[in-house]
Computed example of a mutant assay.
Amino acid sequence: MTTEESANLATVRAYIKALESGAVGEALASFSTSDAVQIELPNKLNPQGGQSDLPTLLMRAEQGQKLLQHQTYKVRSEVAQNSTVAVEAEWSAVMAVPIASLPAGATMRAHFAMFFEFSEGRISRQRNYDCFDPW
């Protein structure tokens, strides 16, 4: 693994830890380029999928603070190649409010495949393939 690949992988690991701990604002923005984009492929929570710029991502992180009591990521595999890092993770979150048929206090689970592209040591593009367990 090259020095760049190791650094990118370390950044993704730190980013996931920041998400897990509920980071918002500059603490979260510091991982990304100012023109970063996240693409979310269609899934149970977002059937149409979507694309978010950095300000939208930061707003969604703050909104998540109101929806989730806490969340965890269990990384199953990770690969770094050139300026791309791929991560497979299991995600779980305890809901702070009811969502669909899940009451507050229930745990939502999903399996994520996340692909990160880097520019100058920061995340410039993220694609998420999220597969939620039934609820």
Score class of each variant (00 low, 15 high):
3 T>M: 10
20 E>G: 00
71 Q>D: 04
44 K>T: 12
31 F>H: 06
5 E>Q: 15
55 P>Q: 05
37 V>R: 15
54 L>K: 06
30 S>P: 01
34 S>V: 10
19 L>T: 06
63 Q>V: 14
132 F>G: 02
11 T>Y: 00
65 Q>H: 14
98 P>G: 08
28 L>A: 09
131 C>Q: 11
84 T>Y: 05
100 A>K: 11
12 V>C: 05
46 N>H: 10
7 A>G: 00
21 S>K: 14
35 D>I: 03
37 V>H: 10
54 L>Q: 03
119 S>M: 04
73 Y>K: 03
62 E>L: 10
131 C>E: 09
132 F>H: 08
24 V>I: 13
106 A>G: 10
68 L>I: 06
109 R>G: 05
99 I>S: 02
23 A>K: 00
95 M>H: 13
40 E>C: 07
5 E>I: 11
11 T>D: 03
91 W>T: 02
135 W>F: 12
7 A>E: 09
4 E>G: 13
103 P>H: 01
61 A>Q: 06
105 G>E: 09
26 E>H: 09
63 Q>H: 13
37 V>W: 09
23 A>W: 05
56 T>P: 03
129 Y>H: 07
119 S>T: 13
43 N>F: 08
32 S>M: 14
11 T>H: 01
9 L>V: 15
105 G>T: 11
3 T>R: 13
60 R>H: 13
72 T>F: 08
95 M>S: 08
30 S>R: 14
11 T>M: 07
92 S>W: 01
77 S>K: 00
54 L>C: 06
37 V>Y: 04
42 P>D: 00
99 I>K: 08
75 V>F: 02
109 R>D: 05
125 R>H: 15
106 A>D: 14
113 A>D: 01
9 L>F: 05
30 S>Q: 13
71 Q>E: 07
54 L>N: 02
55 P>N: 03
117 E>P: 04
63 Q>M: 15
58 L>S: 07
63 Q>G: 15
89 A>V: 04
114 M>R: 12
79 V>A: 13
118 F>N: 04
133 D>E: 15
76 R>S: 08
34 S>A: 15
